[in-house]
Write a protein that binds this DNA or RNA. Structure first.
Length: 512
RNA sequence: GGGCCGUUAGCUCAGUUGGCAGAGCACCUGACUUUUAAUCAGGGUGUCGCAGGUUCGAGCCCUGCACGGCCUACCA
């Protein structure tokens, strides 16, 4: 495999030792990696470093193509992964793909010289990273192409790309080897670019409104702010268990106490629950808190923010969701939770003010509910079962039972309800907001109730957070708070029915 | 947790009644200086997810397990 030259390779590897690299591959080398290893060795023998440090690009692929009128005839330096290759004797075409798109290269023996041409033809493979310099021109077929005068291998690929026509469709492989998915599936690249644009637009929207972005602890001695079971970890230096946060709420409110008027955090939270097309154990949550505002102010902000983000990131306020258009422009529908359940389940929850009567009524409707389910949870069940799937048009559902919302302020005229709304689009909950409870005595009572629920077997009831109560006792201004599940928002805005399609590396069972 | 479906070459997939493991792309050899799913000639490269069982014989039938998908249940 190696020629007779006594020349040493530039990187100092002695000749003839490359076989040992077999054992260092991430898994068994096969008949497709073996020839690539041999080519790698030959390149080193030719004095070519297959993994050089850098390459100076003048343009991106998309740039070169888009600005042909201006760049045609000029010398450009482009770089990317070889995604197609057509060798025709003494001339070859290939496409290279970078982060912006792809562009065709044309290599002629006359253009790059016989030695370099032979090197391209014999030692460069589909999947290799290549840098090329040449003049931009248009082929007979009209494709904008770089007429290459010289090229450099930037990284040798030892493994082949997925098939060029059908691409990579195996769902498990797409998630486990997302880099391959991104390399060959343009739609996947598009969705994740949109995700980035959506998050960027959210930041821009909030920053312009005077919100300050902050960061709060992920590792917490006590968790709270949502109804969920936490992940538990161990802090060796303190020799005690810690929790991964399940929400951002309790720390952000401390900052409102501290005098910030408007704060937000965009961060990862962790909930110890099952996997599904709508649940990933770690997900990205946005929470905002605005002093001297209530949930009506927050509602107005959401109603403005979502269409603005869509317009900014997607270029439109009309999205497509599972085959039907949805107009995100305000005003969104508004309905109380009571009315929504009445509309879609034909049941007036206010007519059944205690657990026993509501349970009896719901059971008689044939809805399977575990006996003893608290009244609030029954209402919640009615919401998710009968109402949520119907809320395709952007809709705010207002005024939730106090039992479901231990951190929200009661409605003055209805102390059994809280000033809370959830926003739905496409049948998916994307926003949850309330007037924050700032009465420290009421808050302590709510925690006590949570402790009782917990004692009664509710594993998701929140533990009492004395440090948080201490902060409230120092006085928190009236505050409007908001939570938006970013992954679900991205699902809706990019028309993806599974959360795994908007998370680069979704949780999968480990494969040992 | 339950049900259904799936796992075959690097990728996308066929595989008949239980009887020699297949195709396209990729890859390898050769030809070809404007191709673009390049073309032409030749070449099959495999732990049929794993472990058992039935059988003269298992990719195919049976049992268990792993991983994935969908549905369902539980869960915010």
């Amino acid at each position: 495999m190696v020629g007779g030259s006594a020349r040493r390779s530039t990187c100092g590897y002695p000749r003839g030792r490359y076989g040992f690299r077999w054992s260092r591959l991430s898994s068994e080398a096969d008949d497709l990696t073996q020839p690539r290893l041999a080519k790698l060795a030959r390149l080193r023998d030719l004095g070519i470093e297959p993994y050089p440090s850098r390459f100076e690009r003048t343009h991106s692929a998309a740039d070169a193509v888009a600005r042909f009128a201006e760049l045609g005839g000029h010398t450009l330096r482009l770089a990317g992964r070889i995604t197609s290759r057509r060798v025709m004797g003494k001339a070859s075409f290939c496409h290279i793909q970078d982060g912006s798109g792809r562009v065709q290269l044309y290599l002629r023996q006359d253009g790059v010289g016989p030695e370099a041409y032979e090197r391209f033809r014999d030692l460069i493979d589909l999947g290799d990273l290549l840098g090329a310099e040449g003049k931009l021109f248009q082929t007979r077929a009209g494709e904008i192409t770089l007429d290459v005068s010289r090229f450099d291998l930037l990284a040798k690929a030892l493994r082949p790309l997925p098939e060029k026509w059908h691409g990579l469709t195996d769902v498990e492989k797409r998630y486990r080897q997302r880099y391959l998915d991104l390399t060959v599936n343009e739609d996947v690249r598009r969705v994740f670019r949109l995700r980035s644009a959506i998050i960027g637009a959210i930041r821009c929207f909030l920053d312009r409104r005077g919100f300050v972005e902050v960061e709060t602890p992920v590792l917490q001695a006590l968790y709270g702010g949502a109804a969920a079971r936490p992940f538990i970890t161990h802090y060796n230096a303190l020799d005690r268990d810690f929790y991964l946060r399940i929400s951002l709420e309790l720390y952000l409110k401390r900052l409102i106490v501290g005098g910030y008027d408007r704060v937000y955090e965009l961060g990862r939270v962790f909930r110890n629950e099952g996997l599904s097309t709508e649940h990933n154990p770690e997900f990205t949550l946005l929470e905002t808190y605005e002093a001297y505002a209530d949930y009506h102010d927050v509602l107005a902000m959401v109603e403005e923010m979502i269409p603005w983000v869509a317009e900014t990131a997607l270029g439109t306020t009309t999205i497509e969701w599972q085959g039907r258009p949805i107009d995100l422009r305000p005003p969104w529908h508004r309905v109380t939770l009571r009315q929504a359940i009445l509309d879609h389940a034909g049941l007036d929850v206010d007519a059944f003010p205690d657990q026993a009567s509501l349970y009896e009524q719901v059971a008689s409707l044939g809805l399977p509910i575990v006996p003893g389910t608290p009244r609030g949870k029954i209402i919640d069940e009615l919401l998710s079962r009968f109402v949520e799937p119907k809320l395709v048009e952007p809709t705010f559902v207002l005024d939730y039972p106090v039992e479901l919302s231990p951190l929200a302020k009661r409605k003055p005229e209805r102390p059994d309800l809280v000033e809370r709304f959830e926003g739905f689009v496409g049948g998916i909950e994307i926003a949850n907001a309330f007037s924050e409870l700032n009465d420290p005595l009421d808050q302590r009572q709510r925690f006590l109730q949570q402790a009782q629920d917990r004692a009664a077997g509710d594993e998701e009831a929140q533990p009492t957070d004395e440090a948080f109560l201490l902060a409230l006792e120092h006085g928190m201004p009236p505050t409007g708070g908001l939570g938006i599940g970013i992954d679900r928002l991205v699902m809706v805005l990019t028309n993806q029915p599974s959360i795994r399609e908007v998370i680069l590396f979704p949780q999968l069972r480990s494969r040992d």
